[in-house]
Amino acid sequence: MQAEHSTAELPQLRRQKILLILERDGKVMASELSQHFAVSEDTIRRDLSELASAGLVQRVHGGALPRPKDTGKDYFTRVGETDEVKTRLAQLAARRVKNGQIVIFDSGSTTLQIARSLPADISITAITASPMIAITLAEYKGITVIVAGGQLNPVTMSSSGHETLRLIEGIKADLVFTGVCAIHPEVGISSLHFDEVPVKQAMLSSASHVIAVTTADKLGAVEPFVVAPCNRVHTLITERHVASGNVEDYQKLGIEVVQIDA
């Protein structure tokens, strides 16, 4: 970024331009914005704080990152939405499941769609902390379903706590489909819900292969609670068009990136 402004602009106009830069680059740094707009870093930090208070950006040390588009939607709202892209992502992910495998299904609307997209004659052992996913998987004659019980979070419709962790930590799975609130190449996988963190960490540690399936709006985003670094993911399945950042940032970390066509 190079300095292009000899005088300070109106704050509202400057903040609008910051949002455009954020959409283009996937992140913004206060030091670079200060030079770009020819204002102090304190001024830029106030701008970023105002944008964060309005829910438009996620503040991080030294700058800001995008917010996921669906933050704040409850579970049943997300499950009830018809999303062709999410369906196609789930269908592609479901093809990764092979007969005889032990597969962990994390909670989430996309993971639920993966469960619905499995072949009718698949034969696996499935573990999940989501009652909704467990019910869906139970409809398959060839799937043995193990439910990791615990305290149910009505927002995420998944269980957590000591009992949930104890069961998951005692399993060595072939594959895990991890739910994604946000994933950033530098910050890693992060969640909006604190109680999800240890459960997700246990799932990542219990499987030989980790697959993250997500729409493009969650790439380059950050939520308050960090789960794990990005390189804990082996395969990332996402859209062809990525608005924030670049899939090459994930490939450089050794992640296999698979994209569906537009």
Rank of each mutant, 00 (worst) to 15 (best):
M1W: 11
Q2T: 07
Q12C: 04
R14Y: 06
R14W: 05
L19I: 08
L20H: 12
L20R: 15
I21D: 03
L22Y: 06
V28K: 12
A30N: 05
Q35N: 15
F37T: 02
A38L: 09
S40E: 07
S40V: 05
T43W: 00
T43L: 00
R46E: 04
D47S: 09
E50Q: 15
E50A: 14
S53D: 15
G55W: 03
R59A: 08
G62A: 05
G63S: 01
G63N: 01
G63M: 00
L65A: 15
L65E: 11
P66L: 07
K69P: 07
K69Y: 14
K69S: 15
K69A: 13
D70M: 13
G72Y: 03
T77S: 15
T77G: 09
R78N: 10
R78I: 14
T82E: 14
D83R: 13
V85M: 10
K86P: 00
R88V: 01
A90G: 03
R95M: 13
R96W: 07
K98G: 05
I102V: 15
I104N: 01
I104K: 02
T110Q: 00
L112Q: 03
D121Q: 12
D121G: 05
T125E: 11
A126I: 01
I127N: 03
T128K: 00
M132V: 12
I133S: 01
E139K: 11
Y140T: 13
K141R: 13
G142F: 11
I143Y: 10
T144P: 03
V147Y: 10
G149P: 08
G150V: 03
G150Y: 07
Q151G: 11
S158Q: 06
S160M: 03
S160F: 13
E163V: 07
R166W: 09
R166T: 13
I168E: 07
I168D: 06
G170N: 14
I171H: 02
K172H: 13
K172A: 13
T178G: 02
G179T: 10
C181Q: 08
L192F: 12
F194H: 14
D195G: 11
M203E: 14
S208C: 04
I211W: 00
A212H: 00
V213Y: 05
A216N: 14
D217I: 08
D217A: 09
L219H: 12
A221Q: 11
A221E: 07
E223I: 00
P224C: 09
P224G: 06
F225C: 04
V226K: 12
V227S: 11
V227N: 06
A228M: 05
A228K: 06
C230N: 09
H234Y: 09
T235K: 01
T235V: 05
T235H: 02
H241K: 12
V242I: 15
N246L: 06
E248R: 15
I255A: 06
V258W: 05
